[in-house]
Amino acid sequence: MANYVEAFQDGLRAVEAANRAKHEVKEVFDELNKQLNMETNGKLRVVLRQFEVSELSWRRYENIFAPKPKQYYWAIAAFNPDAGEASMKELAQWSQDRAGYPCKITWAGTESICEDRIALEEALAELLRDPLVAETLVKVMKRECPEKAEEKPEDNKE
């Protein structure tokens, strides 16, 4: 006969392990943001966000052949807190196992499957080193808040 009590206890332990792993992932992003915040004077914040699948993305292309099209996907994104959510730009696609790890980061034709904290930290550092990602981050940092942008013509009046 199946031992349901043991299975239940296994499940509870799995929940704890998954929560620990998810918390660890959050800590990694917190540390990333802490360092970027200091370096950029608060002009850059990296977050996980859902994006709508675009018509031209390869996911959509594949979905021509697929009966269950996905409408949204998770991504690592960056925004300038001064400029608000309008400055949000996708950096890489993201997915995470129900157990917390592995986390999958996909960008520039590469899928990086991170099995633990060190691997995730390395993968995020590799992402930041990518020249196209760096270019996107610079653009995000240069975005200004809508009020400031409107104020500019006034500033020029003397």
């Binding site: 390869w58 292309y61 594949e62 592995p102 996909t106 034709g109 590469t110 899928e111 990086s112 499957i113 991170c114 099995e115 633990d116 060190i118 691997a119 390395e122 993968a123």
Partner: peptide, 23 residues
Amino acid sequence: VLHSLSIVTKRGNHSLKVANRVD
């Protein structure tokens, strides 16, 4: 070729090449 993706798995500081997917 429709699409390609290089798949890497990372454990600690160690990375392993899983496959190149080509559609």
